[in-house]
Design a protein around this nucleic acid. Structure first.
Lengths: 205, 205, 205, 205
DNA sequence: GATGAATGAGCATTCATTCAT
DNA sequence: AATGAATGAATGCTCATTCAT
């Protein structure tokens, strides 16, 4: 009904708006938390009016989910693979570097916010749980398929390793969030056990 | 205007009121998060009116700090020591049992809330940071002085171990909070590395 | 737990607040319609803050229902009986006088608003329907029991007469609301048929 | 820029668009009231975007007036004449049939909405009053010229009869809108008096 | 100390309206 | 003429907090 070029231009425009809103939301939420971040904050930071926000997101919860899908997917797709390259020692160093580089730890914050919202609005719990699951599954799949030692390990054990790794990263990040420091040595200690477990390949020696 | 006996009774009465409010606050915050928990929620759950709340706490932030001091101190003073008794394997089992027993994980929630409030109200950041520190220091002291292997370890390494342990527990608890499971094996993997580090006693093998 | 006088004073205070809010609501709704009337309008007109409104009414719909119960009950209990005294001619004159005296016709407006809200919020339809019913039943009972001619009339016929009378008053009021005039003669024509029917006592001559 | 044939086609197209929007508006307003009906509701129901609405109507009030002119003119031109054919008894039956057939009563709703808007936006009161007047005058003219009994009646008395008839129909329709029933007998009672008045031809016997 | 009516700042959300495409 | 992204005024409602009782 209209030229393709026109449509695409509009579509692209909106995609850019949405992207900017997501970026602004990341910043503002990182600074003030989800409840502390107002729609106006986010929209203004992105250079739009609050109406633009509602043209792109159903409501605040939808934003959180979209942001999670955007940021945490990026974490699972880009950050984590990068961190898991090389020898265990190199990995630890890489994770530590990454931890030190993000301030504040949006990934942990987002996961925590997703969980919080689930408590606060039971009617959207399912939607939020699904968003959490998408992250967890992505991370678990990645870690499960990761094998630096060429040792065959039972699936269930792999899953435990995946969870342990995620817990280690989240825990260290949370500590840093709390201002307690989360340096290389801390992570080394955490990941060393997992790596040892990987080498052993079983839960009980 | 009132008898001496009454005075004492009043004091005790107030202590009981305060205690009940703290307990109710723990429940409600666990269910709805701090922002989702209203003063009315908490007061009603404790069987009082909102006025009773303000007779006992300056405001919501003061409540959070008091609750943190109460709950997290208990965690450091009672729970953690209990968890750290016995051999490393027994410890892991104990921690796993503890993790499984609290639903939802108030300790993590409170730490996260403290950090969140710090972002949301800069004017009270110092107060909140102090509350966080009290917890961290308590845990660190406890863990630092803990030595199941009789091996002498440099202070800095001890601190890293303490942080790692805390990160492991928080991370595992967070995972559980997210519904991802945080079973014994996960923790075993996390704590095994720390224990190994403790045995070795140094950061670099 | 506290002196009776104190409590009563408080209760009375609140009753007065509620009453003033209802009166203000009547005025504002009459002037702007329910949707056009803002909570702030109403509260300010009554000399209170918006919070006072929410201390006394659940929400806007609850206000409408309370106002209806207050005003329309008064209409059924006070106004209508007054109108139905004397001979049919006197009644018509009384009703005409009453019609001319209220500006704008809050009774009709409220009934219409109740019906409108029923359409706009299906989840509260039942509540609103009940409020409408309370009015209709009150009017019907009154009219059904009213008998200026001493003629025995079947119940069903009485009900039809009641409805007809109500329709006449509402219709005439609506016309006046529309600025079409609703003078004594108009009403006389409407009520004459009902009166004739009452005299005849049956639907078919 | 476009062929002549297209121009005509465009004009027809727009007329059809406008017609569809009016029909959709009737449905949506009947269901949700004017304030409850959003432009998007109406446009979507008609199968267009909101932009199409603004290409055809200045704003929401203009739509209401256009809809009134369309629907209520049709009521005055088509429905009412049809209702007023035959003997008084036949008329009553016809009106009752008509009442029972429309659900919900758009005519009453539109008149009420016109009056409501007049209260809510004083700056357009005149425009709205004019729209109301167009309806009232149309109905009054029709009823005034209508004479089933061949009796000469003073103009003023005719006007009163017209108003009474309109009031009867509106009142009965309103009752039905309220769910109170508005059956044939109710209308018969209302219209009987008017008819008697018509026969008598004067206000005072 | 406890109560709860009242306050009022703050915020999410709706929606009529505009305008570039 | 029609589209729909973006605007932003308007408003219902929540809830921490105050204070007279």
């Amino acid at each position: 009904m209209s030229a393709r070029g026109e449509r695409l231009s509009r579509t692209q425009q909106q995609a850019r708006t949405r992207q900017r809103l997501l970026e602004a939301a990341g910043e503002v939420i990182a600074e003030h938390g989800l409840d502390g971040a107002t729609i106006d904050d986010i929209a203004a930071r992105a250079g739009y009016s609050r109406g633009a926000f509602y043209s792109n997101f159903e409501d605040k919860v939808a934003l959180l989910i979209a942001l999670s899908d955007s940021r945490l997917a990026a974490f699972a797709d880009v950050t984590l693979p990068g961190l898991l390259t090389g020898t265990p020692d190199e990995q630890i160093a890489a994770v530590a570097r990454w931890l030190a580089g993000t301030e504040p730890p949006l990934e942990v914050l987002l996961l925590v916010e997703l969980a919080r919202q689930r408590l606060q609005s039971p009617e959207r719990a399912e939607e939020l749980a699904a968003a959490i699951d998408r992250v967890l599954v992505a991370v678990e799949e990645l870690l499960t398929s990761y094998d630096p030692h060429g040792v065959e390990v039972p699936t269930e054990e792999r899953a435990a390793q995946a969870r342990a790794t995620l817990a280690a990263v989240l825990g260290a990040d949370l500590l840093r969030h709390l201002g307690a420091g989360g340096d290389a040595r801390t992570l080394e200690l955490l990941l060393a056990g997992i790596d040892a477990g990987v080498v052993r390949g079983t839960g009980s020696p």
